[in-house]
């Protein structure tokens, strides 16, 4: 890797100040950024570690709203969500491997917005709110495409607020090599309606499958999805699966998630 400055602030304000430098980069658990640096594919002037900020490690569970601090690791989130939001706990406990889960953070995952990551499906599928150092962003407004989010330069995810659904489940079909989601689907049933978020499949990153949501609003059962399919146009086609295969898998995996949730 190239040389860089390193800061580990203890407050959000200090972190924001530290990130004001040109080419400064926030560092969560480093599960994507550190390998990228090792390969010399990024050259930040400064890394600002967020893991020393107590506020970003906070967890709360109030009146059907689970709040997870931005620097909470996947393993910590899995433990915290086990009671209030088992589907989210299950998702968090199957990201990567134990090393990734003990280092990687929810804020880092959502800020990176890898198109095959699991957390974006949970956030979008839950209609979560992304709380930042500047504002609150609804999940529907937050995800903007491959590795693209509504975050601005120097903006830090301080917490993510998940409204707890009546029923939910996340299923993924793993890419054989990376074991990221070739397709992952988060399904959540709220009083206000069902949300279905698909990760891994689209060239635009995580997205909501509105037709499936409407069908499941009418009947929250796998059969409700009969006859529904996704257009292969816009899906990712690569070494591990064609666009058609991913579109097909998204429907299959949605069915699994509904069956498991119902």
């Amino acid at each position: 890797m190239y040389e860089f400055e390193f800061e580990k602030p203890s407050t959000v304000a200090e972190a924001v100040a530290a990130l004001a430098d040109e080419d400064a980069q926030a560092l969560g658990g480093g599960q994507t950024l550190i390998p990228t640096l090792k390969q010399r594919l990024a050259m930040p002037s400064k890394l600002v570690s967020l893991t020393g900020i107590a506020q970003l490690k906070e967890l709360s569970d109030n009146a059907g709203m689970l709040t997870i601090g931005g620097a909470v690791t996947h393993a910590e989130a899995a433990e915290a969500a086990a009671g209030p939001y088992p589907a989210l706990a299950d998702l968090a406990s199957h990201i990567g491997d134990p090393a990734v889960r003990n280092r990687g953070t929810i804020g880092g995952s959502l800020a990176n917005n890898d198109p095959a990551a699991c957390y974006p499906a949970a956030a979008l599928g839950s209609g979560a709110t992304i709380v930042t150092s500047r504002r609150e962003i609804t999940a529907d407004d937050y995800f903007r495409g491959l590795f693209e989010t509504a975050l601005e330069e120097g903006e830090i995810i301080t917490a993510v607020r998940f409204p707890v659904p009546q029923k939910a489940n996340y299923q993924k079909f793993e890419q054989p090599a990376s074991r990221f989601a070739l397709v992952g689907v988060f399904v959540a049933k709220y009083a206000a309606g069902v949300r279905v978020a698909v990760t891994g499949a689209s060239e635009e990153g995580v997205f909501r499958w509105r037709e499936a949501e409407a069908a499941l609003d009418a009947s929250f059962a796998p059969d409700a999805l009969d006859g529904l399919s996704l257009d292969a146009g816009g899906m990712i086609g690569d070494l591990h699966g064609t666009k058609e295969y991913r579109a097909h898998l998204a429907a299959v995996v949605t069915r699994w998630a509904v069956a498991a949730a119902a």
Binding site: P176, A177, S178, F180, L239, H240
Partner: peptide, 24 residues
Amino acid sequence: ALLENAAYDEDGQLLSASFMDYAM
């Protein structure tokens, strides 16, 4: 039989050049 594939594209770039794409 099930997993491994060293795949090149037509420009001679190895597509499965890391464990992210080469399935051990």
